[in-house]
Amino acid sequence: MEVVSGISKLHHSNIAELLGYCSESGYQLLVYELQQNGSLHGFLHLSDDYSKPLTWDTRVRIALGTARAVEYLHEVCMPSVIHKNLKSSNILLDAVLNPRLADCGLGVFFEDTSDNLGPGYNPPECTKPSAYTMKSDIYSFGVVMLELLTGRKPFDSSKPRIEQSLVHWAAPQLHDIDALAQMVDPALRGLYPPKSLSRFADVIALCIQSEPEFRPAMSEVVQSLARCVQHTSINKRLGGDLSTSRRSDDSDYGYY
């Protein structure tokens, strides 16, 4: 009941809203508003050949909305809330693809952080749940951003060994413009502003640093991503440089 009380106090446009609960013997349930488009994980990794991929503009806005949710948990809530389970399957998408972060306020139940998060998300310092901090959330968020950038899973055993861990494979290439262009999700078909891509990669590089103290606060991440969104919007209005393909029609670039 203490957990339910805490969750019921979380109110943010990018956090899944708790509608109710059941606390009877054998039936302990939390009831949330249904999000029509499922999870970000499903969109990125489980879509079939007939599914329309997320555009670059939508990906950046999903990252920004999720960052604002975590900023609220870390820097607005008193006391601060550490999520401890930040991953793409816990980022739900509503009817217009706005993100709603789920599992907020449930950190007390995550006894084994590594198993709960799944391979690829766990920060290097978190060998036990007690080691998890707000900076650990930042790392996991950086991994989600990598998923948005590359379309790859955080850990994929089907890839060559050197590419199985997304962070280990991608981190050395984030500041290499040519390598970065090769890393981008092929589903985007080259439709993105290169400057926005570079800035997005810069934010990722900060978030996934191995030393927690060097990772930024989420408020800094929000500011950086807001600039990415602003730059993307300016490019759309001016019909600017989306990519070497020079395609900028709204049917291929923007919301759908």
Rank of each mutant, 00 (worst) to 15 (best):
Glu111Leu: 15
Gly105Glu: 02
Phe155Pro: 00
Pro119Trp: 03
Leu106Met: 15
Gly105Ala: 08
Ala95Gln: 15
Ser114Arg: 08
Glu147Gly: 04
Ser140Gln: 06
Cys126Leu: 06
Pro160Leu: 12
Leu148Val: 11
Glu147Ser: 04
Arg152Glu: 07
Asp137Ala: 02
Asn98Pro: 01
Tyr121Arg: 06
Gly107Lys: 03
Glu147Gln: 13
Lys153Val: 01
Leu97Thr: 03
Val96Gly: 05
Met134Leu: 15
Asp115Asn: 15
Ser136Val: 05
Thr133Phe: 09
Ser157Tyr: 12
Asp137Phe: 00
Phe110Met: 12
Met145Val: 07
Ala131Val: 10
Tyr132His: 02
Phe110Asn: 06
Gly107Gln: 08
Met145Phe: 09
Ser158Arg: 06
Asp156Ile: 05
Lys128Thr: 12
Phe155Cys: 03
Val96Met: 07
Arg100Pro: 02
Pro99Ser: 06
Val143Arg: 00
Leu101Arg: 04
Leu149Arg: 02
Cys126Thr: 04
Asn122Cys: 14
Ser158Gln: 10
Asp103Leu: 07
Glu125Tyr: 01
Cys104Trp: 05
Lys153Gln: 13
Met145Asp: 01
Ser158Glu: 11
Asn98Phe: 08
Asp112Pro: 03
Cys126Ala: 14
Pro160Gln: 12
Tyr139Pro: 04
Phe141Glu: 05
Arg161Leu: 12
Leu148Ser: 07
Thr113Arg: 05
Ser140Thr: 05
